[in-house]
Design a protein around this nucleic acid. Structure first.
Lengths: 205, 205
DNA sequence: TACTAGTTTAGTACCAGGTTATAATAGCAG
DNA sequence: CTGCTATTATAACCTGGTACTAAACTAGTA
C-alpha cells in the first residue's frame, strides 16, 4: 500500500513549497518550478493538495486583509483596550506589548507606547466633548518588555468645574509591579454640563 | 477648441470613476460599466487617462503595501523623520500630522503622537547602546492640527557620565510657534551590551 | 514476468480580466 | 463638407491560472 521508502521527496517538496510561498506569496507557479525543479503540473497538484490558492487569490486575500484593517483602524483612537470606564471617576485599560512596540535590539518597549496607553486612558476617562492633554508629569519606573501586559488604571483626582481642567493620575502595572506613573492635566471643553452622571451623549458612537 | 458644453459628462464620469474605485478597489471594469452606464471600452480609456491600473495591479499594490509594512516595521523605531542629528548634542526631526493621528471629530492631534515624536528624538540623540526614557515633564502648549508639520528640536543639557543619565530638552514647533515642550531624563546603558542569548539561526532563507 | 498503484509530466480546452491596436459611428463646430 | 472629440465595437493577444485526459516513469508485489 504505502510504498514508504521513496515517499519522502514529495513531503519534503510540499514543505519547501509551503515555506517558499509563505516567505514570498508573490511567486507564480512558473517561478516555483525553477526553484523546485519539477514540472508546473506538479506544482499545481501540490498546491491543490496543500490547499494553497493561486497567486491572484493570495494577493486578493492580502489586499482584503489590509483593506479591512485600514477601514477598521480607529485603533489609533485609543491605545489599549478599555476594560472598565467610569466617566469622570476612573478607568482601566489593557495593552499588550508586541514586536512593533519594542526596541528590536533589547525587546524593551519604547516609552511613548506606554505613555500612549496612559494618555489615551486619561483622555478617555474625562467625560467631555473635547479633552486634550495639557501637561503631564511622568515616570517610567521600570522598563516593560515584549509580551508583557500593561494594565493602566486612571483616577480622576479633581475637576475644576469652572476652570475646565481635570487632573488625572495614571498607574500602569505589569502584574503586581508598577511600571509607570503619570500625572496628567487634561483640558476639557469649557462651558457645558459638568456631569454628575445624568448626561446622555448621543454623538458618541 | 474646447467645446465646453457637452464636455462635462466626461469629467464628471472621471470623477465618479475615481471615487468608485477609491471606495472599492475590488471592482472589475465590467462592474463599473453597470454603474456608469457606458461601454467597457470607455471605462478602460478612462482608467488609461486617469492612470488607474487594472484590478489585478491594484490588488497587487495593496498586497505589497501591507506586506512591506509587516516586514519592515521599524517604522515604529522612530516617530518622525530625523533631519539632523549631532549625537550627545542636538537633533531635529519632522513629523507631519496625518488622519490617523488626530481625533476624528476635531482634527486635533492626540497628545501621545506629539509626545512620541519628542520622545523618539530624545532617545535617538543619546549616543548609546541602550537609551530609555526615565521621566518626562511635558507641556502641550497649543493643540496641533491635521496636516501641520511638527519640527522637534532636542538639546542634550547634561550628561552625568557616571550616573548613566542624560537630560534632554525638546521643543516642538509648527512654523514659528512652539506647540510642545518637554524635559526628558534618559537612562543610558553604563557601557554594557545586552546579550540576546547568542542564538545563531542557520535556517534562514 | 506481468499487474497494480502512486507520482510525475504533458497537452488541450477554457476562463477572467485585462492590454493593444484598429476601425466604425455619433455629434457638433468651424 | 471637413475636422475633431468621444464613444463603441471588434479582434488578437497576454498572464496565470483551473479542469480534465492521457501518457510515462517509478516501484513493490503476486
Amino acid at each position: 500500500m504505502v510504498p514508504a521508502i521513496e515517499r519522502l521527496p514529495k513531503r519534503q517538496r510540499h514543505q519547501q513549497l509551503s515555506k517558499l510561498i509563505e516567505e514570498n506569496p508573490f511567486m507564480t507557479d512558473r517561478e516555483l518550478t525553477r526553484l523546485l525543479k519539477v514540472s508546473i503540473q506538479t506544482i499545481r497538484l501540490d498546491r491543490l493538495e496543500l490547499g494553497i490558492p493561486e497567486l491572484r487569490e493570495r494577493l486578493k486575500l492580502m489586499a482584503e486583509r489590509s483593506y479591512d484593517s485600514v477601514r477598521s483602524l480607529p485603533l489609533h483612537e485609543v491605545i489599549g483596550d478599555i476594560v472598565d470606564l467610569q466617566l469622570d471617576k476612573s478607568g482601566i485599560s489593557m495593552f499588550e506589548i508586541a514586536h512593533e512596540h519594542v526596541f528590536s535590539r533589547t525587546g524593551i518597549a519604547r516609552g511613548h507606547h506606554v505613555f500612549a496607553q496612559a494618555n489615551s486612558l486619561a483622555v478617555a476617562v474625562i467625560d467631555d466633548e473635547i479633552a486634550l492633554t495639557a501637561t503631564a508629569d511622568i515616570r517610567f519606573i521600570r522598563s516593560v518588555k515584549l509580551g508583557e501586559k500593561c494594565i493602566a488604571k486612571a483616577y480622576v483626582r479633581s475637576i475644576s468645574g469652572e476652570k475646565s481642567k481635570a487632573k488625572v493620575e495614571v498607574f500602569t502595572y505589569v502584574g503586581e509591579e508598577m511600571v509607570f506613573q503619570g500625572n496628567f492635566v487634561i483640558y476639557r471643553s469649557a462651558g457645558d454640563y459638568v456631569s454628575e452622571g445624568g448626561i446622555e451623549r448621543a454623538d458618541r458612537y
